[in-house]
């Protein structure tokens, strides 16, 4: 295995994605507009404590932005017929998958940090642990970018099918996560349901790093997120490998 060429291929795939896909309409709509609209719908105008719910909002922003690039790339490339050419370059499937995830994650990290910095101008946000906050943003971005890439894996050359599928998957993940109701106030079935959403653990990490009042210990949240990342990558690879066998 030629590790240098492999590492290089990942970075070039990432760079290519950043240049071509960041500015596509669906990324702008699903990655930027959507979370803002959700924010206004659910938080503004209702007598909520913005600071209390801020970790939830930040989590939602991160979730949407990081997972918005991935679903677009592969279907788009298949439709434009650039995918076949990409695969024949000195890359392996992992270069493409990891490159796609990285470009989604960079988008998520970038936008989330910008949004966070802007919010600190408007709200008196406490920051208990800046290092943990950064780590959570990076970890969450990678996980949700991996989800985006997983969602792009089914064989289709129609990006809008995948966009639909990804809304179908992403919205429930938002609704069952602990962003609307703090995890500490849940019990029974709703607690179980909430535990099934990976977003819950990122929001918990944000609680820990902003106000220091998380439900789980940070190491547990981090462990869950690492597991989720590996799961998404493994599933994306399995599906895309099958597509390569079938020649689609």
């Amino acid at each position: 295995m030629d590790w240098r060429t492999f590492a290089r291929s990942i970075l070039i795939v990432t760079e290519k994605n950043m240049r071509i896909y960041y500015f596509k309409g669906p990324v702008m709509i699903f990655g930027l507009l959507f979370p803002l609209i959700m924010f206004f719908t659910f938080f503004i105008g209702r007598d909520l404590d913005l600071i209390l719910f801020y970790p939830g909002f930040l989590g939602m922003m991160l979730f949407f932005t990081a997972s918005s690039v991935g679903p677009l790339i592969t279907p788009w490339e298949k439709r434009e017929k650039t995918y076949e050419r990409l695969v024949s370059l000195p890359v392996i499937l992992e270069s493409i998958i990891i490159g796609d995830i990285l470009s989604g994650a960079v988008f998520g990290v970038g936008i989330t940090i910008i949004v966070f910095c802007l919010s600190t101008l408007l709200l008196p946000l406490p920051v208990a642990n800046a290092g943990l906050l950064l780590l959570s943003i990076v970890l969450g971005s990678i996980a949700f970018a991996a989800l985006g890439t997983l969602l792009s894996s089914p064989a289709t050359n129609n990006p809008s099918n995948i966009m639909m599928l990804s809304s179908l998957v992403r919205l429930p993940i938002i609704f069952i996560s602990g962003i609307f109701i703090p995890l500490s106030q849940l019990e029974g079935l709703s607690y179980l349901l909430t535990s099934a959403s990976p977003l819950t653990y990122i929001v918990d990490l944000f609680h820990a790093s902003l106000k220091g009042n998380a439900v789980y210990p940070a190491w547990f949240d981090i462990l869950v997120m690492v597991f989720v990342i590996l799961l998404f990558i493994g599933a994306a690879k399995a599906i895309q490998k099958r597509n390569l066998m079938k020649g689609i």
Partner: peptide
């Protein structure tokens, strides 16, 4: 050994084209 083999090739696929956004 796909990377080593592919480094030695230049390929024009039948159903493959270059990026129209570049």
């Amino acid at each position: 050994n796909p990377i080593a083999a592919k480094l030695k090739m230049g390929v024009i696929p039948e159903n493959g084209t270059v990026y129209s956004d570049l």
